[in-house]
Every structure is written in C-alpha cells, then in structure tokens.
Nucleic acid binder design. Structure first.
Lengths: 73, 73
DNA sequence: ATATTTTAAGGGAATATCCCTTAAAAGTCA
DNA sequence: TGACTTTTAAGGGATATTCCCTTAAAATAT
C-alpha cells in the first residue's frame, strides 16, 4: 500500500525504529502504516514529507514528482 | 483547522451536503472534518484534491501553490 | 551456524470514527 | 421584521479503529 514510503525510507537508510522515534510512535505502529494495516494520519505524512523533503502527494502516490512545492513558513 | 478546505469549497459554491454526497459520507461527518473535530483521512483528502484540482499539500496548508502536481496514470 | 538486528503478527484496552437527531446559524423574501 | 428555508454544528452513542505490547519471523552480520 505505502510502497513509496518504504522505498524512500530504505533509500535514506533508515529503520522503522528510527522512523518511529522521529515520529514518536511505536515501531509496530510504524510498520502497520507501511504495510497499510493502519491508515496513516495526515499529521504523520506531514512529518515524513518534511523529513524526506518531498510532498504528501508524492508519498501517497498522487504524483511522480518528488520535489515539493515551495513550503510555507 | 482546515480553513483552506472550507474556503475552496465556498469559492466553488458547494455546500457541505454536496461535499458529503460526493464523498459518500454524512454531512455532519464532513462538518467535523472542516472544523477539525475529526482527522481527515488521506483517502478523503485525495478525493477533495481531485475535485478541486489541487494538491493535498495545498489542502493541508503545506504550500501556497494551488495548482496540482502532475498526476499519475 | 548463530547471534544480532529488523520487521511483522496477534491481541486487547483505550480512543476515535461516523452517523443520528436536533439545535443553531445564516440566508431569503414578502 | 418575521416567517420560512437552507446550511452548518453540537450532543451523544454504537461500533470500528488505533496504538502499543509481547513475541515471532525474517533478514542481516559475524
């Protein structure tokens, strides 16, 4: 389901535990997100997009453009 | 919270009931989303972005660029 | 091979979701 | 202005989902 998030994470050499720590959630919860067992809250997508300097649209596979629009603030 | 979604909806002269019908949810649920009483699932944001031809990033206030990213498919 | 690291399954208490009814607010027009 | 209509939001509850825990499985390293 969220294949793209998994791919970016692996590209950047991060483990699920590191992601979980960054997001302040449990590793198993993060795993549930990647697998698609749980819906990823938009707040989480927001932080992942920040971390990987991309857009939520890219993360959820709405676009293939990886570079984000200019961010606010 | 989701001021921007409300604004676009009003710009396009749509009522909450019309949005709810499009999204196949109840009007009160849609209201809860706009108010920020409930988290908007990404699937819903996806459909709203489609309807208004913009990006999820714009809807959730990550960017001020209103045009959508090049879409997939 | 086995020890270590990383990821995923099972399960349950706590929480959030979604919708219902209905109330409040906003808009219409005589 | 007041009655009427339309639109939006509050209260509340059954149900579904979330999040984390423990632990197992899978992958990786030594």
């Amino acid at each position: 389901m969220y294949e793209r998030i998994r791919n970016i994470r692996e590209d950047r050499d991060m483990t699920q535990s590191q992601m979980a720590e960054y997001l302040r959630i449990h590793q198993t919860t993060y795993s549930d997100y990647e697998i698609g067992k749980l819906n990823i809250p938009v707040q989480v997508l927001d932080k992942i997009a920040d971390l990987f300097e991309t857009s939520i649209d890219y993360l959820v596979n709405r676009t293939d453009v990886e570079i984000p629009y200019p961010l606010k603030k």
